[in-house]
Simulated scan of single mutants.
Amino acid sequence: MENFRKNIGLYFGTFNPIHIGHLIIANHMVENSDLDEIWMVVTPHNPFKKKSSLLDNHHRLDMVYLATEGYDKIQPSDIEFNLPQPNYTINTLTHISEKHPNYKFNLIMGEDNLKSFHKWRNYEAILDDYNVYVYPRISEGVVENQFTEHLKIHRVAAPIVEISSTMVRNSIKNEKNIQPLLSSKVFDYIDKMNFYRK
């Protein structure tokens, strides 16, 4: 067994915006597994896709910084910002492993993503070299048989949190109070910057 200094879970998302659901999952995963840290990897805007309501990369990263202050085991990451687009998870995993050879990296995903994991680019290569930690989600479809008992796939009985960034954005647009759904610093930042109002 190689000697790794830290066992790190990578939690990918657009975090548009990051909400308490993301924090509940990340904190539960790091406190109830053998992971030492969770890195919240902010996914950059794909230049090949229509922009829609996705905030600029640096604003979403700023909000992840604000939301994770005070969580020693949860760190923001902009590792994907400098990778060529469109980017695939396997490329990020390879890049980050080369950049930090002393760390062991793992992929974190919701069960909804596990159901479509067989469609991911080079998913076999991901499972050859990385462990996958799965948290429960309410979603349609079934997990493929090849993933149900896979030695590299670990299920963590995290709380099921049905809060979405889409719901947060729509509520702001419709002038609803969403304070309980965001950390106070993220709420203040969105309010000050006037985000998601239109």
Rank of each mutant, 00 (worst) to 15 (best):
E2T: 13
F4W: 05
I8C: 11
G9R: 00
G9F: 01
L10M: 09
P17G: 00
I20V: 14
I20Q: 11
L23P: 00
L23C: 03
I24R: 12
I25V: 05
A26D: 04
M29P: 01
M29S: 09
V30C: 04
V30H: 00
E31Y: 12
E31G: 11
N32C: 04
L35Y: 02
I38P: 02
W39D: 12
T43N: 06
P47H: 10
P47S: 12
K51G: 08
S52R: 12
S52P: 03
D56L: 13
N57R: 02
H59A: 13
M63N: 00
Y65A: 14
L66V: 05
A67Y: 04
T68E: 01
K73W: 08
P76W: 03
P76Y: 05
E80Q: 04
L83H: 12
P86D: 14
N87A: 05
N87R: 07
I90F: 11
I90E: 10
I90N: 06
N91P: 04
N91G: 06
H95F: 14
P101R: 09
Y103V: 01
Y103A: 15
Y103F: 11
N106M: 11
N106L: 12
L107C: 06
M109E: 02
D112K: 03
L114W: 03
H118Y: 12
K119Q: 13
W120N: 01
R121C: 15
N122K: 13
Y123R: 04
A125P: 03
A125N: 13
D129A: 14
N131G: 10
V132W: 00
Y135L: 08
Y135F: 15
Y135G: 04
P136S: 05
I138W: 09
V142F: 11
V143N: 04
E144C: 11
E144H: 09
N145H: 13
N145K: 11
Q146S: 10
E149W: 10
L151A: 10
H154G: 02
R155N: 08
A157N: 15
P159H: 13
P159L: 07
P159W: 13
E162I: 14
I163M: 08
I163S: 07
S164R: 01
T166A: 09
S171Q: 15
I172K: 02
I172Y: 05
K173Y: 12
K176L: 15
I178M: 05
I178V: 15
Q179A: 15
P180N: 14
P180S: 10
L182M: 11
S183E: 08
V186W: 05
D188I: 11
Y189H: 04
Y189C: 06
M193H: 15
F195H: 13
R197V: 07
